[in-house]
Design a protein around this nucleic acid. Sequence first.
DNA 1: ACAAAAAATGAACGGTGTTCAATTTTTTTC
DNA 2: GAAAAAAATTGAACACCGTTCATTTTTTGT
Lengths: 196, 196
Amino acid sequence: MARDYIQENLVHTGRTIIREKGVEFLTARKLSEASGYSVGTIYNQFGNMDNFILIQNYLTLDSLYHRFLKIKTDSAYERLNMYAAAFAEFVLENRNFWFMVFNFHLNQSERTFSITYLRRISTMVMLIEKSFKELYPTLKPEKRHVSVQILWICLFGVSSLLTTSSLETYSKVEQTKICKFLLNTYLTGIKVLEKI
Amino acid sequence: MARDYIQENLVHTGRTIIREKGVEFLTARKLSEASGYSVGTIYNQFGNMDNFILIQNYLTLDSLYHRFLKIKTDSAYERLNMYAAAFAEFVLENRNFWFMVFNFHLNQSERTFSITYLRRISTMVMLIEKSFKELYPTLKPEKRHVSVQILWICLFGVSSLLTTSSLETYSKVEQTKICKFLLNTYLTGIKVLEKI
DNA sequence: ACAAAAAATGAACGGTGTTCAATTTTTTTC
DNA sequence: GAAAAAAATTGAACACCGTTCATTTTTTGT
């Protein structure tokens, strides 16, 4: 069978496994059984399972990115709120996928694809930065950059907790409100600090 | 040998492994080899490896808590800043341990100990809430509680990223500054929102 | 000193990622 | 179209993982 078709097929099968059963079920043997291809073929196509997961994570990030792209509002403030809402919504809708994104560490993976992966993240950060530029025109570019980075890190960090049950266990704050509250408090803080 | 002594010994050996080599080296067999006790003994003492990790994580949280307790400043604002600094410092100093805390999910572990574990977390959150009460006396208790929870979740989420190399890879913001900046922006935001 | 109870042991089970000699399929060459 | 060469596919085998449990060793009670 054609190489591309196999990859597509495996990736698709993998995605079904993740969606329906969770990451812990995404093993070489189970993927092999579910797809009909042998274990060796998976390794021929992707080198190792980490790479396979990296590709899956890229797809997840890409999906989130395209949700962001759909958001087109004139008000920068509203747009940022919609980003945050879309983000939280996406994470909750795609728990299993986001859990994977978060629990995967780039260290050992192939450099080549890692770059593509990181670029996808920074593109999203740039979307936020664009809105920041509109919202805080007098904020120094340097400071704005740092503000955006940190906001993103916070949202990213919070999102990781949304995918696990740890939040439900100890905090009674409604999950969807966390990102919204964080964003608004943060933006208000920046507005004040902008003037200093 | 006495039961208690074995537990102590195993926990201590485990801690050395984590500190020097990382969580991925904390396996039943390696712990057995390093401690001199058999694999079976580990299971007699702790039931399963998850429980062992839970105990290790409790020790980590306890260590952080005692760092918090040392902080005694009159100014609530300064105190919160010191909490944040101590937190970031602790996480960076104990990367391997904190990574474990974060990457462990309570779901399947023994209920009994989980409660002790969660109580340790909520005690820390209460420390922050106490400072919030001083800093924002007019803020409604309900709102204050939510603010504190969310701040904690943010710091917690950010801390998880501090333990991995992912932050270094894509963001150039200095790690120690992230918590400080987040806290100050957040506190400023709350101050404004307090009046509304 | 001996029997009974408790604790410690490590081989064995089913799972994981990964490798690679052997096989099958596809492509090239004549 | 058949034979040879190249490429792709396979799955048994390796070293690891958490976990169990029949067996052995140690401790305890009398």
